[in-house]
Amino acid sequence: MNTKNLTCINCPMGCSLTVEMEGDQVIRVSGNTCKRGEIYARKEVTDPTRIVTSTVKVLHGNAAVIPVKTKEDIPKGKIFDCVKALKKIQVEAPVHIGDVIAADIAGTGVDVIATKNVEQGADI
């Protein structure tokens, strides 16, 4: 058996959580004040995921870069692969909110989409 210590992020209480695990199985969560803490701990130790936000270069736009995000959470372990893949991408203006910038980023099955409008303009 091994234990992991986490901080619950769901409210300002910031309870210190202790998760007891047997291999991949969660045996017990303690330290939480409410149910949300336990749900968070179980997810965080078995399948931690994050939304990733970054920027991508734009050509012929009225801005130098365009902000983007993964449309859904991706596994935490894939964050750097995702960002690295985005570094190689350049898009041509105009680009609009929700446009797919990169499909299936880093093999996660999740698309990366634009979060801002960039219109055509003098290159900046």
């Binding site: 936000t53 902000p67 909110i97 979060t115 801002k116």
Partner: peptide, 22 residues
């Protein structure tokens, strides 16, 4: 503020700063 976490109260979804402004 290109990170997400805006608008949870207003729109019940987590938007990035530019999306919220838009």
């Amino acid at each position: 503020c290109i990170h997400n976490g805006f608008g949870l109260h207003t729109f019940q979804e987590e938007l990035t700063g530019p999306e919220y402004a838009h």
